[in-house]
């Protein structure tokens, strides 16, 4: 009977684990819903900003803006540092979510280093910070307080020093590694170049010439480009947070399913053993009685 006692213990432990994973799945589902609404709510602002910048930017104008200009390569005296911002979650148990983001960031960092840049890594989120700390890599910046509930102010705090450094010509580029939120099940780790700004393509039949601009296009751009950069960052934060909940829900759902399967197997084994034990006992009694009679 010793073995069946061990089985009983395992059944209990798997049942408890399943309860936990099931609860986490439900929590992630409800958080996902709210995070998803936040992602959708960022669209009108981003689209308005993108449309206006597309209308304003012209190739002649782009030359005058440090945020739009492609800096010279290091060999020709350009800046030798490049920044990479990595967004990860503060919590684990989300499947390969954070590992994939970290892998994507390392790929980008390797590519930059091969191109001759020294990489400034800015890690946001406990998982990314923890990983690079473990590797012993010095980080130019780290934050743990952002990803749970991102606000536009977080994006401003993160981006402002980088925009300033870029405008001073200290940085060759700024890349953002985040999880794009395409659907709760599709959240590929993605790298976007935030600086220099890739001006969005003008819409067909743009009517920029008809506007009364006050101040002129150059000054408008000068003020609106930083807004655009910060908004890209904010969207990255919001999408990563939604993607995290999506990934956790998926991971916890499969954990719950797996626990159920193991539980079935354990219960079957336990019952079979119990039956075997009973059968054996009866056989012994019958055998003993027969021996007495004989």
């Amino acid at each position: 009977m010793a073995k069946s006692k061990a089985l009983k213990g395992r059944i209990r432990s798997v049942t408890n684990t399943r309860k936990i994973t099931r609860t986490m799945e439900l929590v992630a589902t409800s958080k996902l819903k709210r995070a998803q609404e936040r992602v959708h709510a960022t669209r009108p602002y981003a689209e308005a900003l993108r449309g206006v910048i597309a209308d304003l930017v012209t190739p002649e104008l782009a030359e005058g803006f440090p945020l739009l200009r492609q800096p010279a390569p290091p060999a020709k005296g350009g800046p030798t540092r490049a920044a990479v911002i990595l967004l990860t979650s503060n919590r684990g148990l989300a499947g390969g979510f954070n590992a994939n983001l970290i892998k994507e960031a390392r790929r980008r960092m390797d590519a930059l280093e091969k191109a001759g840049y020294a990489v400034d890594l800015h890690a946001i989120g406990k998982k990314g910070v923890g990983f690079f700390k473990y590797l012993g890599r010095t980080m130019a910046g780290q934050r743990l307080d952002v990803t749970d509930h991102p606000t536009p102010d977080h994006a401003i705090e993160v981006m402002e020093p980088l925009i300033a450094a870029y405008a001073r010509g200290e940085l060759a580029s700024v890349d953002l590694v985040y999880a794009a939120f395409i659907s709760p099940l599709t959240t590929p780790p993605t790298t976007v170049r935030i600086l220099p700004v890739e001006p969005p393509a003008a819409r067909a039949g743009a009517t920029r010439a008809d506007y009364i601009l006050r101040p002129d296009a150059a000054q408008l751009l000068d003020r609106l480009l930083p807004l655009y950069v910060r908004n890209t960052m904010y969207r990255g934060l919001v999408e990563t947070s939604a993607a995290e909940h999506g990934a956790r829900r998926t991971a916890m759902k499969s954990a719950t399913d797996n626990a159920g399967e193991i539980l079935d197997l354990l219960k079957r084994t336990y019952n079979r053993q119990r039956q075997a034990a009973i059968t054996q006992e009866i056989a012994e009694i019958v055998g003993g009685a027969a021996a007495l009679q004989g």
């Binding site: 936040r38 709510a41 960022t42 009108p44 602002y45 981003a46 606000t151 536009p152 994006a155 908004n231």
Partner: peptide
């Protein structure tokens, strides 16, 4: 008239 902030249309 639409008033839009990064967090949504208000």
């Amino acid at each position: 008239v639409t008033v839009i902030s990064p967090e949504g249309s208000i």
